[in-house]
Design a protein around this nucleic acid. Structure first.
Length: 157
DNA sequence: GGGATGATGCTG
DNA sequence: AGCATCATCCCA
């Protein structure tokens, strides 16, 4: 059983040019337009999977939250095997999906209605949540929509 | 059918 | 700083 705590996220909304849903509904982005509380997993750069939680405010037609980094909690050795290294195994969106064996098979699943991948409430966060521009995008770079636990060493660099 | 691009990560 | 690598999308 692999278990990890989310320590870094980014928000993407339908009116945001950096969001996959910005250019409208396509087969790939369909989950972003669907009901909230589902996973949106996509393949990028010919190598990596990234995972989002479909999540948006009332009245917003599509959007999600990208999970950018997690802190390993249980099954760390398995994660290291999946990553084929011991350090820096979950501090990035493509790294954490590899460490947690997340792939296209999880796309569209409900976040709490299957035995493959789900979310649980975490511990009370005692650290401050820091805010910054998002990483790796070419548009919408001015928006402060990246959130991470300040001081947590598993946050991406 | 072809070309451009990408919410990245590894190597040098 | 460069590049691997391919699914997806837009245009022709």
């Amino acid at each position: 059983m692999l278990k990890a705590m989310i320590v870094e996220t980014e928000a993407y909304t339908a009116d945001d040019p950096a969001c996959h849903a910005f250019r409208g509904l396509t087969p790939r982005t369909a989950p972003l337009f669907g009901p909230t509380g589902h996973f949106y997993v996509y393949f990028i750069y010919g190598n990596h999977y990234c995972i989002n939680v479909v999540s948006r405010a009332v009245g917003i037609k599509a959007g999600g939250v990208l999970i950018r980094a997690v802190e390993p909690v249980a099954g760390i050795e398995i994660m290291q095997q999946l990553r084929d290294k011991t350090d820096d195994i979950t501090n990035g969106p493509g790294k954490l999906t590899q460490a947690l064996a997340i792939n296209k098979a999880h796309n569209g699943l409900e976040i709490n209605n299957n035995d493959q991948l789900w979310l649980e409430a975490g511990p009370q966060i005692k650290h401050k949540i820091a805010v910054s521009p998002r990483i790796g995008i070419s548009q919408g770079t001015d928006k402060l929509l990246r959130f991470y636990i300040k001081g947590n060493r598993f946050v991406s660099r």
